[in-house]
Design a protein around this nucleic acid. Structure first.
Lengths: 236, 236
DNA sequence: GGCGCATCGATTGTATACAATAAAGCCGTC
DNA sequence: GACGGCTTTATTGTATACAATCGATGCGCC
């Protein structure tokens, strides 16, 4: 299966800023683009067949989501969360997600469960197919779906944002070889939610997040190719 | 004291998108601009003495913060959070803020306390001076400062976002005549933090938020001048 | 030969011109 | 007189041209 055309949109109309932002986000979240990569406006404009106006708008959107970093007069790069930010993101997740998971366990309908199950099947398929990027992205979406099931749009958006940022963090700091693409934790989560056991679901989610956090190596410098310029900026 | 020039910036250089966004945000948060108000690009461009390019960028920023709503080909208006969104925002605040308040109580330095105290003095002054808009904005900032003291940038940003949205919610749904500008709760908060009593601080914050939520009238239609168009859109 | 400075090229920031869309006003018809 | 469709106008969406800024290259000087 050779990869198809570069731009996977409707394509009868030219791409909007939202289209470009979404496509870039998908690329970042599946680790096809790595932290630090320069995102030149002219390049993107040519790739997507739009003007720089659209590209700039898309980049601004991604900057607000903290997936890219824009430095004035210096252009945009894929964001590189600091170890501190990494820690904070996971602390925030541990504050929010166990709570919504408990709510989700109380509210989940059979339809919701089917959705989650389908999601896990997709994850499995991606892993089996060797598409680790897709597996990773789906794995993040699983968490967002749980927040959606809790029927809390506002919190679900926060979770999405944190999950997205976690993807960058994992790209930078993940140290275990295996186990990221294991779906065991998600299985346990699904079981607890299906059983309607709120407290258990909460506990499983909390441990899952702790385990994820634990898989990171947040000691900053040493060997890792952190640029000098980055290392010397304030706030680490 | 007559109000000065319309644009309160550096003014030696022309305003940037960030300047415009910040000024508009300040106007919204102090209730000088009300939900539903149309923000025409040409108008703003003339007011701030910049091109529509800058204005559009600023509006996009505010849209990401959910302070304005942009509908394609229809322009931007100050956002009107639905009753549901209002409920969700306060639920999220009750999940997050008590937690950071407890952390803040544990960590607060004498410098932090001085900052909070100054903040409260400013609030008092604004109330005394009859500037309810400024008092309201400061009152929101008080919550953000607490999150900052907890030394959690990521969560502090979430709190800021929620507090900002709360300002719109209050503009739409506040029902009590008095008491919004009372600073009693903030006083109690400051005391608990100064005492380093984390659990108490958490409890005080939780009650404060519950009280705020309780001051809202979230029954949607009836008398209130919600436009028909708005009332008939999905998701209420 | 190394350091500092000026010029050049590339890239981003801003403004403006043009195209597209949606709303409002107008007219004719029923 | 009210409804439906058309035209007009105001407003937003997009592209492009121009200005400003940054980094790099190369030169001269120490």
């Amino acid at each position: 299966m050779t990869s198809p055309a570069p731009v996977p949109f409707p394509s009868d109309r030219s791409a909007t800023a939202a289209d470009v932002a979404q496509d870039l986000a998908a690329a970042i979240l599946s680790h096809r683009l790595s932290p630090g990569l320069k995102l030149g406006e002219d390049d993107l404009a040519e790739i997507y067949g739009v003007s720089r106006t659209i590209v700039r708008s898309a980049l601004q959107t991604l900057a607000h989501q903290r997936l890219v970093e824009i430095r004035r007069n210096r252009g945009a790069v894929i964001a590189s969360p600091s170890p501190r930010e990494a820690r904070e993101v996971f602390e925030a997740r541990r504050l929010i997600e166990p709570h919504v998971t408990e709510a989700a366990a109380r509210r989940a309908t059979s339809q919701d469960l089917a959705l989650l199950q389908q999601h896990m099947a997709d994850e499995h398929a991606a892993v089996a197919g060797g598409d680790r990027g897709r597996a990773l992205a789906l794995s993040g979406l699983f968490h967002v779906e749980i927040a959606r099931i809790a029927d809390q749009i506002t919190i679900a958006e926060m979770v999405r944002s944190l999950v997205d940022r976690s993807s960058l963090i994992i790209a930078l700091y993940w140290r275990r070889q295996s186990s990221l693409c294991e779906t065991g934790a998600h299985h346990a989560l699904l079981d607890a939610i299906a059983a309607g056991d709120g407290p258990l679901a909460r506990e499983v989610m909390d441990r899952h997040l702790a385990d994820l956090h634990d898989g990171l190596d947040l000691t900053p410098p040493e060997g890792r190719d952190v640029s000098l310029r980055e290392a010397l900026r304030p706030e680490g």
